[in-house]
Simulated scan of single mutants.
Amino acid sequence: MTAATPFVTPVTLRQHGVRLEPLAPSHEAGLRAAAADGELWKIRVTSVPEPQDTRAYIDTALQMRADGHRFAFAVVDEASGTVLGSTSYHDIVPVIRRVEIGYTWYRQSVQRTHVNTTCKLLMMGHAFDTLGCAVVGWRTDNFNFASQRAIERLGARRDGVIRHHALRRDGTVRDTVMYSMTAGEWPEAKAQLLYLLKQRTQH
């Protein structure tokens, strides 16, 4: 990695019929349809764009990518080409080899399926095994209990709570729950995720 080469470079990751590909303007219609599956923008503890804001959401992600702070993926069903949602590496700090995984959301019809586990396995594997990260972090709204449970199922440890930390879409200010996993914890977490994925994809 040189000064001219970003820490996270474009890559497409795939497993179990799920493909993570760099988010691009061509995903606009697919993302809008994914968000409409469950009207996800109405959930106050998520970052899902409203339909008319989908292009701006992509433009913001691409600008953050250019600035080196975030790398966003579209989550795509390999068989049909349907966009299932989006997820990102963010708060990328190359000097300490740290990334966080977030800005994650999926159309309602694939929630509580193997999709999230597959995406996290792909992103954690790429972060630890390819990028050589020392730590991967997560952050979530203190009232997003489903997200907290999902992060804990990955094997991440709860670091603590940052109070009065970020603005929600409804204008209220959230506390942020922080989690992390170190490179030394990854092999055990990977084994557990592979086991969970096997259970989910056998049915």
Score class of each variant (00 low, 15 high):
residue 126 H to Q: 10
residue 52 Q to W: 11
residue 58 I to F: 07
residue 163 R to W: 05
residue 83 V to F: 06
residue 15 Q to H: 15
residue 136 V to G: 04
residue 143 F to A: 13
residue 182 T to F: 02
residue 46 T to A: 12
residue 39 E to G: 12
residue 23 L to N: 06
residue 57 Y to R: 10
residue 77 D to I: 10
residue 176 T to Q: 04
residue 54 T to R: 08
residue 66 A to W: 01
residue 47 S to E: 11
residue 76 V to I: 14
residue 35 A to F: 02
residue 8 V to G: 01
residue 58 I to Y: 08
residue 36 A to N: 07
residue 56 A to F: 10
residue 72 A to K: 06
residue 182 T to A: 03
residue 109 S to G: 07
residue 166 A to F: 14
residue 115 V to R: 08
residue 82 T to N: 08
residue 101 I to G: 04
residue 146 A to D: 10
residue 120 K to E: 09
residue 57 Y to E: 11
residue 68 G to R: 09
residue 185 E to M: 06
residue 82 T to A: 15
residue 141 D to F: 03
residue 24 A to N: 11
residue 79 A to L: 10
residue 59 D to C: 08
residue 97 R to D: 07
residue 141 D to K: 02
residue 36 A to L: 15
residue 156 A to F: 09
residue 6 P to K: 02
residue 126 H to G: 11
residue 194 L to T: 03
residue 64 M to P: 00
residue 191 A to L: 09
residue 187 P to N: 03
residue 137 G to S: 13
residue 62 L to V: 04
residue 60 T to W: 14
residue 180 S to I: 09
residue 70 R to C: 11
residue 11 V to A: 02
residue 144 N to H: 13
residue 156 A to E: 11
residue 159 D to H: 01
residue 110 V to A: 05
residue 114 H to C: 05
residue 5 T to D: 08
residue 102 G to Q: 01
residue 13 L to P: 04
residue 62 L to A: 02
residue 13 L to Y: 06
residue 187 P to W: 00
residue 33 A to P: 01
residue 167 L to D: 04
residue 80 S to Y: 13
residue 62 L to E: 02
residue 147 S to I: 06
residue 113 T to A: 01
residue 93 V to W: 13
residue 130 T to D: 15
residue 48 V to F: 08
residue 42 K to N: 13
residue 60 T to M: 13
residue 109 S to T: 14
residue 91 D to N: 14
residue 200 R to P: 02
residue 69 H to G: 15
residue 81 G to V: 12
residue 54 T to L: 11
residue 74 A to R: 05
residue 62 L to K: 04
residue 112 R to W: 09
residue 124 M to W: 06
residue 114 H to S: 11
residue 135 V to F: 02
residue 181 M to C: 02
residue 9 T to A: 03
residue 136 V to N: 03
residue 79 A to N: 00
residue 151 I to H: 08
residue 127 A to W: 05
residue 146 A to K: 12
residue 77 D to Q: 14
residue 202 Q to P: 00
residue 93 V to Y: 12
residue 202 Q to R: 15
residue 128 F to Q: 11
residue 178 M to R: 06
residue 50 E to C: 10
residue 77 D to T: 10
residue 52 Q to L: 13
residue 73 F to W: 09
residue 35 A to W: 02
residue 88 S to R: 11
residue 66 A to K: 12
residue 70 R to D: 05
residue 166 A to M: 13
residue 46 T to Y: 04
residue 185 E to W: 05
residue 86 S to N: 12
residue 45 V to G: 00
residue 189 A to K: 03
residue 16 H to G: 01
residue 25 P to G: 07
residue 45 V to Y: 15
